[in-house]
Simulated scan of single mutants.
Amino acid sequence: MRRISVIGGGLAGLTAAITAAEAGARVTLYEAHSSLGGRARTADAPYRTNEGPHALYYRGPHWTWLKQRDLLGPLAPIPPLEGSRFRFRRDGKLRKVPPAAMLRLVRRREAPVDRDFHSWAAQIAGEAGARAAARYSAVAIFHHDPGSLSAAFVQERLRRTTALPPEAHYPAGGWGSVVDLMTSMAWNLGVRMEIGTRVSELPQDAPVVVATSLPAARTLLGDSSLTWHSGRTVLVDLAVRQRRGDAFVVSDLDAPGWLERFSAGDATLAPAGEQLIQGQVPVAPDEGKAVGVARAEELLDLGYPGWRDRTVWRREALAAGRTGAVDPPGTTWRDRPAVDRGDGVYLAGDQVAAPGVLSEVAFASAIEAVTLALAEQRLGRAA
């Protein structure tokens, strides 16, 4: 049987391990932490938070991959839009609808790769429409200035996040439920899982899929070229006592930012009588966590009146370089670090050369990495 080693037990690593095992390979997966899942881990009760807001977009290839293997599990119902209190901050006030000019950009033909989104969008929707569209798209970009990125990159995410019916779906119980199902499948396929094992040198007896963060892969492989652009985002999670009229989502069109009451569709995420709110506010390279927290609190004041007196639990963090790749003008996903690193080493994760939005990149790159590894082994045996 062919052998493959996988380093990293997040979504990319589990996808690679399952794909390789399904093809008949003997797989060993190494995970440095005490549990699998990476950034897709879900905290234990009573507050079942993800590491930042998470959603599955059902038009993505990873949705089909998971569904075919019965790995999605039950999904939380999406609150109906007309009654969900989906709100937008615009000019300092909460509004029920985004500016009409913003939606013109969704219907336009494909945006150019080599222009920044703001300059391209402003010619179609005006300055205000372009700014609103860029800031709204930050929910799928985690970057402080989406308007400065490639127009094609931002428009794809704008289309996916404004689609009706909504593309975003939520695994009941948090992303950890998907990780549990993937872990069980990997185990049943015979994947050997070395948990709590930090790898400092690559195994030499088999092809290796490095499914870690890009900085970790750069250190492990000693390859300084493994860099790409990402964002910095302040994550704010809190549980508040329930109050009638709380918003489901608050999207900031005055500056990039997003708050979502995840327990609106999944009451199991928080104790009875409480609501779990998770938010992300991108910050610039020269801004600290306090800046993002202050902006998140401004949104909370608008969407969740009296939240300070109702808060029973709170957590804050700064996520730097952990929120996926962003493509500047003139670049696409093809320009990111290649999956095939040569000498039987393959890269998987959310900042490498694979298509998709958010976690879709990790799935796509993992499948590509295993496909290339197995093909190289077949060629080697034939030679």
Rank of each mutant, 00 (worst) to 15 (best):
R159M: 05
L11T: 10
R341A: 10
A247E: 13
G306R: 05
G342T: 00
V234Y: 00
Y346W: 10
S365R: 02
D70H: 12
H33V: 03
P112R: 07
R48Y: 11
E287V: 10
A17M: 11
W187L: 13
G257Y: 06
A152S: 14
A21R: 00
T19G: 06
A211E: 06
A382Q: 13
P328Y: 13
P285E: 08
T19F: 06
T28A: 08
H118N: 11
R315Q: 13
D145K: 01
G73L: 01
D145L: 03
G306H: 05
R160W: 10
L81S: 13
V250F: 02
A373Y: 09
R160T: 13
E368N: 09
V293K: 01
A130K: 08
G342Q: 00
Y170E: 02
D335P: 05
T268D: 12
A122L: 05
I18V: 09
R39E: 05
K67L: 12
H62L: 11
L202R: 04
A383L: 13
V210A: 08
I141D: 01
A152E: 10
E167T: 08
A101T: 14
S224V: 14
K96Y: 06
D254E: 13
L214K: 01
V27D: 10
L75R: 00
V6W: 05
G174W: 11
D116V: 02
I7M: 04
L276R: 01
A211H: 04
T219E: 15
V178Y: 02
P74L: 11
I78C: 15
G8T: 07
E167Q: 11
G13Y: 07
